[in-house]
Design a protein around this nucleic acid. Structure first.
Lengths: 245, 245
DNA sequence: GAGTGGTCTAGACCACCGT
DNA sequence: CGGTGGTCTAGACCACTCT
């Protein structure tokens, strides 16, 4: 009877995917599994850990283990195409229940040396500084994203971009005022497990990956004017892109 | 001295990010940690498990635990824009070492009922069938992606799309022959932990998320003509998108 | 206070890898 | 073969939640 923990996890997984246990339901806990399967507590624990690590369940200390709920927020990279394009509002995942309100917290604006990679993407000379705008987004009380923008200090230092509130249209509006309107973008995405720091920053439950997005904005001249590094809770987001040709 | 496992993991993590341990290096193993920290084997094990679950380390049974290597393959969604656009070849992650060769394995072509979600995306009537093309991609001997295409059977049943090799230009070429050339696409991405099945399908090491991509192709008439569901090893891919306006 | 998850120990046995 | 990871047990103590 080797592989007991996996066996128990398989059983529970089956009960979840069959619908016997639905999102929000309580999964049999450690003591229950000890009784039902006649295993040691650590083994029952390992079984539950497998589910948690797959993102299927969530532990609540002192209360129990529950089937995870998944109500994704759609992140639409190119809204314009999405709106007059085809397939708008269609989704494999039920992500239509969108437009929940963002709140911005922990906004920080400061000038500093850019990370090496950012300096390269912005084509900055040695020792050129950047204006950094960092913030967290919160939805329904839960932090879901951290975003950090980098802009060449020499271009934006004197503009409202260095203010906490850059005004109507946000920083892209102000860049437009400066004749540096972003018109093309590159986004690079990567998914991975979070570090402990990132995990607490986004209040992630175990078994939740993060999506790292690096967005570079270019002006009409083809000059990179902003790098935005985002870190998203993968359990909360669905990313959507519209492409042509 | 509570939280011992996390403490040990923190130490090791620090040694990795400081560069003392570099990708490919051997991490101190369970017996070593038992000696160095004077903890039980299970505790040392838990410490290593934390690193593995973060994707920082890989276990090799009978050999040791090693710092993971990350050499991403770039997946460029819209090549045309990428090529004449700006920012081509720029990347935060060292993903330029691309163009490693794909091999296609386990190609299967068959006709069947579509999954409910796929039927909805393809706007199929009740009981309409789809042609399914499923395959795995292998790079340097390692499976990295599974892709499953669904096309309305009534449109493509008589075409070479039902052949294993649909000929020059692939299935998009044949769709063009049929006057059903795809010109717009929607891609929806989501990252999550894999199920056990998916994990073995892609030979994933523990702590590696997957990226699920659902791509819908539309003809010039705005008709959905293909749904492609992909499952990528997140430890291997970087997704890149180019956007305008 | 009873029930639940969180962490740890000390020891056992097995499977696999490399020399 | 010795070293390494893989799994399990039985019991301990703690921290938190809910009623």
């Amino acid at each position: 009877m080797a592989e007991t923990a996996r066996q128990i996890a398989d059983d529970l997984r089956a009960r979840i995917s069959s619908g016997e246990l639905t999102p929000g339901d309580r999964v049999p806990g450690e003591p229950a599994l000890v009784r039902e399967y006649g295993v040691a507590k650590e083994t029952a624990r390992r079984a539950l850990t497998l589910l948690v690590d797959e993102g299927l369940a969530v532990r609540r200390r002192g209360s129990g283990t529950y089937v995870r709920e998944f109500r994704p927020i759609p992140r639409v990279a190119n809204k314009r195409l999405a709106e007059d394009g085809w397939g708008a509002g269609k989704s494999i995942w039920d992500a239509d229940l969108g437009d929940r309100q963002y709140t911005v917290t922990d906004l920080q604006v400061y000038e500093s040396e850019p990370p090496r990679q950012v300096a390269k993407l912005l084509e900055l000379d040695e020792s050129e500084l950047v204006v950094v705008r960092s913030r967290r987004y919160v939805v329904e009380g839960e932090p879901v994203q951290r975003a950090t923008s980098y802009l060449p200090a020499r271009d934006v230092r004197e503009s409202p971009i260095t203010q906490e509130n850059p005004g109507e249209g946000g920083i892209y509006g102000r860049l437009a005022d400066l004749g540096l309107k972003p018109v093309r973008f590159t986004e690079e995405l990567r998914a991975r497990m979070p570090s402990q720091e990132e995990s607490s920053l986004l209040a992630l439950s175990a078994g939740t990956p993060v999506v790292e997005i690096c967005r570079v904005a270019f002006t009409a001249n083809g000059r990179p004017i902003e790098v935005n590094q985002m870190l998203l809770d993968a359990g909360v987001y669905v990313m959507r892109y519209h492409l042509e040709s």
